[in-house]
Structure formats: C-alpha cells, structure tokens
Simulated scan of single mutants.
Amino acid sequence: MPESSSSSASNAVPTLPAALKEVETQRAAIKDYPGKAPALMRALQALGDLQRDAGSIQEAEACYREALDVAARLQVPADAVADVRTNLATLLDFNGREEESLPIYEEAITNHEALGGENEEVGAQLRNNVAMTYKGMGKFALAEQHYLRSLETLENRRGRKSESVACVYNNLGSLYYAAGFPDQAKEMFEDALKIRVEVLGDRHRDVAQSLCNLATACHELKDNVAAQANFEKSLAILEAQLPAEAASYENVGLDYISMLEILGEDSKAAAFKKRLEKALAGR
C-alpha cells in the first residue's frame, strides 16, 4: 500500500513538562537574540511531536504552525523548515483533514526537493501521500502526476529493483483501475509483481497482494483464467503464513469467492468457502 512519510526531531525532549519549559526558555531567548530562532524551532517541533504522539492534535498543530511562523520571520535552516512542514502536513492528513494538508504537502515537497540528496526521496514519498488524497477526491490526473514524479525520483536514486519503486507501481495500478483503465492497471500491477518477486522472493505477503491486484485487473479484462490463477497463487502464499496473515487471507478469499459466483462457478465457490472457513478456524 501507499507509503507515507513524517519527520520528528532527532533530539526530542523525553517528557512533556520539560518540552514545554524548553519552548518557554527559547521564546524568551529570541527576544534579545534572534539568532536563537533555530533552537526555538527545534523546541517547538519536539513539543509538537510529543503532543501528536499523546493524541493532542490541536496542540501539536499549534506548535508546528508557530514553528513555521518563526521560520517566516527569522533565519532558520532550510531542512528544519522542510521537516516541520512535513510533520504538519502528515498530522492534518492522518486526522481527517486531507484537503487542508495538500498545500502544506506541496510546500514540503518543494523544500525537500530543493535540498537535494536524500531529501529528494522524502519528497518522493510525500508525493505518494498527495497522490492518495487526489485519488480520493477523484482528481486522477493530479494523482497520476505525483505518482509519476515519485516513480522517476525513486528509480533514479534507488534503481528499478526496490520495494519503494514496486509500491509506486502498485499505487499507479490502483489509480488506473479506479479511473477505469484496466489495461494500464494490469501493466502496473505486473511491473510491481515482477519487482517484488525479485526483491522479496516469491512467498512474500506483498507478492500475494500484487497477485490479488493483478487477478482483479485480469477479471475486469475478461481474462478469467488468468484471474483465477493469480487469485489461487495469492491465496497459497497467504494460507502458508496463517495465522499471521489471517486477515489478508480472508479478504482475498472473499474476493475470489465473489468472482467465482459472478462467473457462475458456484460449486467451486462453495468448495473454496469451506476451505477458507476451515483454514481460518484453525488459526
């Protein structure tokens, strides 16, 4: 599934009272010494991280926004700004404010890509987050743009044979499928599957996911022989890993049964349903 990214201060203060005290100390310091702004920004980020982890979302948001306000008024390192924007964007995104997160994500991506080096990969991962939101909004063209930019960056930096690249191919396949282009979806799922087999081996749970996705695309394209074969390969991988993969095995199994019933193969669907129930009962 889509990857996501967030950053946190490397020297986060371990307790909330200490973090609050540090913020107050640094707020006082910049009144006389504006050059202390980076320390205040780091303190605000550390406090925001603690509040986020404690579930105090509004308080965390306020800290991140104050940190960005400090950055707008005073001189702070560019990488610190990128990290805080990333934290604010992901905070909003993961708490039901996806659309509101988009412009902040876009700024964070610009910041990371301008820094170059490993930050380019962070930007590529953030593009995945943005693409997921655009897909959910039905803005498929914008989602595609971000996935393709992410793919280009990751392939340039990591090479084609990497799980992060396979993840983007998988996400592109899901996008094309949702947009009504099963041919393109199938191509992307096949690319993701090939990479995952090479990188992870042919018995990995992510390989099973790719096989299931490919089966769905094949079914949409009326290639039901291939669809059944891919479903069965996926299920064999997951069944061998019960009980750890019980949820995935059940979900894929129910999709397989649904397809068989649509195809009128009721006896085969009933037989597999019994097998599914027996396997899950023994988990």
Rank of each mutant, 00 (worst) to 15 (best):
14 P>K: 02
233 K>E: 05
82 A>Y: 03
40 L>R: 02
271 A>M: 13
183 D>K: 15
11 N>S: 14
21 K>L: 09
86 T>H: 01
191 D>W: 11
6 S>N: 12
93 D>M: 06
231 F>E: 04
27 R>T: 06
31 K>Q: 14
263 L>S: 13
164 S>L: 12
3 E>N: 12
253 G>T: 07
260 L>C: 05
201 G>H: 10
130 V>C: 09
11 N>G: 00
50 L>V: 00
118 E>A: 13
242 L>A: 12
109 I>G: 06
180 G>F: 10
136 G>T: 03
209 Q>V: 03
111 N>L: 00
152 E>G: 07
265 E>S: 08
93 D>Y: 13
123 G>Q: 04
235 L>I: 06
45 Q>Y: 10
257 I>F: 10
224 N>I: 05
175 L>S: 02
204 H>N: 07
84 V>T: 08
146 H>A: 06
7 S>T: 14
236 A>M: 00
51 Q>G: 00
145 Q>W: 03
42 R>N: 09
75 Q>K: 10
235 L>P: 00
221 L>A: 08
224 N>L: 03
282 G>T: 12
230 N>Y: 11
143 A>E: 00
189 F>M: 05
152 E>W: 02
63 C>T: 06
21 K>C: 08
139 K>H: 11
239 E>G: 10
46 A>R: 01
215 A>H: 12
150 S>E: 00
279 A>T: 05
146 H>L: 04
2 P>H: 12
222 K>D: 15
171 N>A: 09
178 A>I: 04
190 E>P: 00
200 L>Y: 05
267 S>C: 11
170 N>I: 05
198 E>M: 09
6 S>R: 12
19 A>V: 03
214 L>H: 07
63 C>H: 01
5 S>R: 10
43 A>N: 05
71 A>I: 09
249 Y>N: 09
154 L>F: 03
228 Q>V: 11
160 R>Q: 14
60 A>C: 02
164 S>A: 12
227 A>M: 04
77 P>G: 14
17 P>K: 08
30 I>K: 03
278 K>Q: 15
37 A>W: 02
192 A>Q: 09
263 L>Q: 15
272 F>A: 07
149 R>G: 14
42 R>L: 10
7 S>Q: 08
243 P>A: 08
218 C>D: 13
91 L>G: 01
38 P>V: 06
35 G>F: 05
10 S>G: 09
13 V>P: 01
85 R>A: 04
30 I>G: 03
16 L>R: 11
50 L>A: 07
252 V>T: 13
31 K>F: 02
182 P>H: 11
111 N>H: 14
75 Q>S: 15
97 R>K: 13
233 K>M: 02
158 R>W: 09
273 K>E: 14
22 E>D: 11
278 K>S: 14
137 M>H: 09
137 M>L: 15
112 H>M: 08
134 Y>I: 00
207 V>D: 01
121 E>K: 14
32 D>M: 04
255 D>P: 03
137 M>I: 02
139 K>S: 13
64 Y>E: 06
50 L>I: 00
74 L>R: 12
16 L>E: 10
75 Q>F: 00
205 R>T: 11
40 L>Y: 05
128 N>P: 00
76 V>D: 00
24 E>A: 13
222 K>M: 13
69 D>N: 10
103 P>Q: 04
177 Y>M: 13
77 P>T: 12
38 P>Y: 01
205 R>N: 07
18 A>M: 03
61 E>N: 06
220 E>K: 09
6 S>P: 02
136 G>I: 00
127 R>E: 08
194 K>H: 15
170 N>F: 06
57 I>Y: 07
220 E>V: 07
